[in-house]
Design a protein around this nucleic acid. Structure first.
Lengths: 136, 136
DNA sequence: GAGTGGCAGTCTCAAAAAGAGACCAGCACT
DNA sequence: AGTGCTGGTCTCTTTTTGAGACTGCCACTC
């Protein structure tokens, strides 16, 4: 309310964009945000931003994802145009996933949030601890 | 792979941060990203970034949220330290929700993603349409 | 003084999404 | 012939979300 006021141009406009003027169905921003919002989507985007990976590699990289969710999330990401899926006809056919230009572009913006998270996760953790303590 | 290569400092490091070196439980970034990832969290953050709101106002502003989810999401946001909840002892006691400094700070980073979404949602929509068409 | 409506929720139950893990076919190596 | 790798699908259970009824309090109206 006093310290660091963030310079946002027309937050109200932003909000209008998300609320879609009463019609939520064709709200573009929300649609995109949903795309990042899956439990595993950000994680996989981050991994693929580093370099392309194969299905099995991703599975090993993110050990606590189920195969079902990995398949599903990669499919969704591909559908949204963030990820490219390429099948190589080797003897056991291997499949490589990589970011598309759109995916890289999106990750560029998303990256801001990641950097913020790295800097401020202690603050969040502390807030949570305080809150839980005050509720007890 | 060729066009606009995004300048990311050490994506691998970023990934290591999220994967937590094998231990996902204390992965700070993922924890924060989860905080943004709820279906309604981003929406409410956007609304509150504009100005403080009362419970009923938010409900009218986002008509397709259920009361249960509104209560829940505001509670979570408060717990994470993004939102401040203040009860005014008026005759029907009113409750005002506003962003904290931490919340505004986070929203600043999140805003990048919103801007990207505004610019690129047609591309995502198009990709999705193409993909669905090619599957048919 | 009974009804109506706004306030900020809680409670219950149904539907949707996520997670765990078994199972599949094909090939290579031992 | 058995083991392990490839990239998945299928089924079942648990968790999360959603819809909507219900609460208690007060003010205003009739």
């Amino acid at each position: 309310m006093d310290g660091k006021v963030i310079n946002l141009k027309s937050k109200l406009e932003v909000y209008k964009a998300i609320s879609g003027g009463g019609n939520i169905a064709n709200c573009p921003v929300r649609e995109v945000i949903q795309g990042v919002s899956g439990k595993w989507r950000s994680l996989l985007m981050m991994a693929l931003a580093e370099k392309p990976y194969r299905f099995g590699e991703l599975r090993r990289l993110v050990p606590d994802i189920s195969q079902r969710m990995l398949t599903q999330t990669l499919y969704d990401l591909q559908r949204d145009g963030y990820v490219h899926r390429e099948v190589f006809p080797t003897k056991p056919p291997s499949v490589e996933y990589s970011l598309t230009d759109l995916g890289r572009s999106m990750f560029g913006a998303f990256h801001q949030l990641i950097l913020w998270a790295e800097l401020n996760h202690d603050a969040v953790r502390a807030a949570r601890a305080d809150f839980d303590a005050s509720q007890a």
